[in-house]
Design a protein around this nucleic acid. Structure first.
Lengths: 112, 112
DNA sequence: TTATTATACATAGCGATGCAAGGTATGTCA
DNA sequence: TGACATACCTTGCATCGCTATGTATAATAA
């Protein structure tokens, strides 16, 4: 019985990760797990399509670069447009999570 | 171009509403809009299937009651089992929203 | 040396979720 | 009478995230 835990804001998380530094896909998965204290365990089947979508929207730019190990990685860079999207998405998130909290609080009051 | 704004935690919001008092569907939509300061505008096509699902799980019990207006409304009552679900769902939400916030913060630091 | 694991990217197909759209019915008010 | 708000419900569609799978290379273990 597979368990769902992800909820949508995947693009926000991706844009957010890339605000600090350029990253490649696999690295994003590891970083996201680390920074979220393993609450997020993003799957490759989730991430890669999202990356391609964000690139098509002009939010990200990709380039290939060889790692010290010899492997070629595909790095993503946040564009100016992507930075703007990050700001509006962050604002949406605050709005949304604040609203959920407000509903939870109002009910908790009713219970008390 | 239809816009999506809802993200999933619909059952959590419904359970939360019913923690305070029994409500009927239409009322939940109005109350949710009010308590969320109109961030949530739940559609009937979203709410009713969710109510039926929660009822089937034994989280809610429904009963019909005539309103002063003469109309018969279908009220939902939160069961004990539903109350437990509410607590675990609330905890999941805190976990999730906390993780998103953590990721957003860590990236913001990288940018600063 | 060979096999396994970790790294790294990608896509097809499935299930669940939320919404638009439509249907039914009753009460209220102009 | 007609329009609108109230009140419930369902069908069908689009989107999203996950599972599963495929490909390929580097590191490590047996």
């Amino acid at each position: 019985m597979p368990k769902k835990q992800q909820i949508e804001h995947t693009p926000l998380l991706v844009l957010s990760l890339l605000a600090g530094e350029d990253m490649y896909g696999y690295q994003m998965i590891l970083e996201l797990a680390r920074r979220s204290n393993h609450t997020f365990d993003m799957k490759e089947g989730t991430l890669y399509p999202v990356l391609h979508g964000l690139e098509q929207k002009g939010y990200l730019e990709a380039y290939r670069q060889e790692a010290p190990t010899g492997r070629v990685r595909k790095y993503y860079h946040l564009t100016r447009k992507g930075g703007e999207a990050l700001r509006t998405e962050t604002e949406s998130w605050r709005q949304y999570s604040g609203a959920v909290d407000a509903v939870l609080r109002s009910s908790a009051l009713g219970t008390a």
